[in-house]
């Protein structure tokens, strides 16, 4: 029985007909590649958009922050703003008067 069983077990498996199996696999493969390509393109577009959107804002933000800190410590600027404020107040008072 044991020898018979080993012979039976050793019989090669019946391979199914090829049919359209390979064609289906390759079709799925192309679909997969097309999807991967679309994802890659989308990722590049997104990255480009992020760079375009963030980089100029970062530059502008830095410029504004730098200017603000310089102006905040500038005595002539502070005197100028005070003078403008006083002149505006004077004109408003005189115009109403």
């Amino acid at each position: 029985m044991s020898d018979d069983l080993d012979l039976m077990l050793s019989r090669p498996l019946d391979e199914p007909d090829e049919g359209a199996f390979s064609t289906r696999v390759l079709a799925r493969l192309r679909q997969m590649q097309a999807r991967d390509d679309r994802i890659e393109i989308a990722a590049w577009v997104l990255a480009a958009c992020c760079i375009l959107a963030i980089l100029p804002m970062t530059g502008a933000g830095r410029m504004i922050a730098l200017s603000a800190s310089q102006l905040a410590t500038s005595i002539p600027f502070a005197l100028g703003i005070t003078l403008l404020f006083l002149m505006r107040t004077f004109w408003e008072t005189w115009a109403e008067g």
Binding site: L13, D14, E15, P16, E18, F21, S22, V25, L26, Q33
Partner: peptide
């Protein structure tokens, strides 16, 4: 991809049978 297609053709029968 053509090389992989050939691999599929060569090995599909054995894998599907298993």
């Amino acid at each position: 991809v053509a090389a992989f297609a050939e691999l599929v053709r060569l090995h599909q029968g054995k894998l599907r049978a298993f």
